[in-house]
Amino acid sequence: MATTLPGRAAAGKTSRGGPDPATPPTKARRKWLSWKRSTPYLLLVPAAVLELLIHVIPMVVGLWMSFIELTQYYITNWSEAPWKGLGNFTVALDFSGPLGRQLLRSFGVTLGFTVLTVGISFGLGLCAALALQRFGRGRGFIRTLFLTPYALPAYAGIITWKFMLQRDNGLVNQLITNDLHLTGNRPFWLIGSNAFVSVVVVAIWQQWPFAFLMTMAGMQVIPDEVYQASSIDGASTWQQIRHVTLGMMKPINSVLLLLLFLWTFREFNTPFVLFGPTPPASADLLTIHIYSSSFINWNFGLGSAMSALLMLFLILVAGGWALWNRRISRDA
């Protein structure tokens, strides 16, 4: 069996830092169709069929859809939908037109939302993981408590926040106006510009436990000897955190930040449960913007074009990250 790995597989493997690839189980065999040769393919068939049906074909269909005029008249007989060429993309990217302007605004909102949510979630997760290092008794309990928002089904947590953010009967307004007297009249949290704050806070509430989980796991693999050595050298707790802990966690932190960015940028649940399918302008995140242009306005062609643009952006981000990551690991 020829065992020259495609370059991509080798690269993917090392970037994930997995253990060394296993050596081939059998010696080279001349026969083309042998039971042994086809075993891995047979094992992959179910996964490949499903990936093809639910992921690959829809992706191709989606790209194709972005080039046709797929409005409500053509949903069930989509083969008759007229070809539109780059028309949908022109509409989406025409920033002087209303649809293009909305898309641009939505992109800006999403970028702000993502940067704030990822940054704060990561910061909170890291601080909590640091604070719980060598905590002693009660550590397990606090860890479990902190992970609960992550375990809770997304809608259960978000709908609770929706209740808390109600203007007249919510906890937040009760706390800031009646209990703490910070403001005289009760602000609206789910409409207007405050909606942005709400969606960021709720997203952080759900996301930070994951950052906590990953940073905690990253700290566990740092050997104790490194800390002992540095404390013999007279390093203070803070110096240890800065130079030992954070230094050794660089690889896992960079993976974590990329994952959080990709996930947060396409966040759908939080705005959808908080505001329904048509959120206020200040919280009009991209995925929900695409969702409502497609399913509320029934313009699938435009929706697909916008999804394709979103996908392109995420590919660019991931690609940029890979380049940056390679430079970091080369310098290290």
Binding site: H55, M59, G62, M65, G303, L310, M311
Partner: peptide, 27 residues
């Protein structure tokens, strides 16, 4: 196993993780 297409399969499978659900929902 080390087999032809292994890298492609892993690549395709992992890359689907990057794309927004909405992208798949419409098609």
């Amino acid at each position: 196993y080390r087999f032809r297409g292994r890298g492609t399969f892993s690549g395709v499978v992992l890359s689907t993780q990057m794309f927004p659900g909405v992208l798949f929902l419409l098609p």
